[in-house]
Amino acid sequence: MTDDRRSQFENMLDEHHVWPCPYVFKFIVPTDNLPLLAALFESERLETRESRGGKFTSVTLESTMCSGREVMEVYRRASEIPGLMAL
C-alpha cells in the first residue's frame, strides 16, 4: 500500500469512528505463523478457525483502538508476518 493510500485509509478511519472504540481485525495467516500474529495481541482473545486442510487459519479479534493511526500501526506490524492476508 502506498503512503498516499495509507493516509487516505487512516483519514477514513478517523472520520467514521469516535475514538477510543472497539475495532474488529480479520486476518488469514498460514497456521505455522499463527504464533507470530498472536504475539502482536498478547492480551487479546483471538477467535480462530483452521482451514479444512490445516494450512491456514482465519483470525478475528476485537480490540479497543484509540486512533486511526493506532489501527494502521497494527496492520503495519501484521504485514511483516509472512503469508498474512488482512481482510
Rank of each mutant, 00 (worst) to 15 (best):
G54C: 07
R52P: 03
T64H: 08
N11G: 14
M72N: 03
D32F: 08
N33F: 08
F41A: 09
S67L: 01
A86S: 15
L87C: 01
T2E: 06
M72W: 01
A78M: 02
R5A: 15
L13S: 08
T2K: 06
T57Q: 03
E50L: 07
K55V: 07
W19P: 11
S43Y: 14
P20M: 00
E42I: 14
S43V: 14
P30D: 00
R52L: 05
P30M: 00
L13P: 12
R5H: 12
V29E: 04
N33H: 15
E50F: 02
M85P: 10
N33E: 14
R5C: 02
E42Y: 11
V18H: 15
V59F: 03
R77K: 10
M1L: 13
L13F: 11
A86E: 03
G68S: 05
S51N: 06
H17I: 04
R52T: 13
S43G: 11
E15I: 01
M72F: 02
S58M: 00
F56T: 11
P22V: 04
V59Y: 03
C66E: 12
P35Y: 06
M65Q: 06
S7E: 15
K26N: 09
E70G: 07
D3F: 08
I28A: 09
S63D: 05
L87S: 05
I28N: 10
L84G: 10
R6L: 09
V71H: 01
C21M: 00
R49G: 09
A39M: 02
M1C: 13
I81R: 05
T2W: 00
V29Y: 01
L87P: 06
R6Q: 10
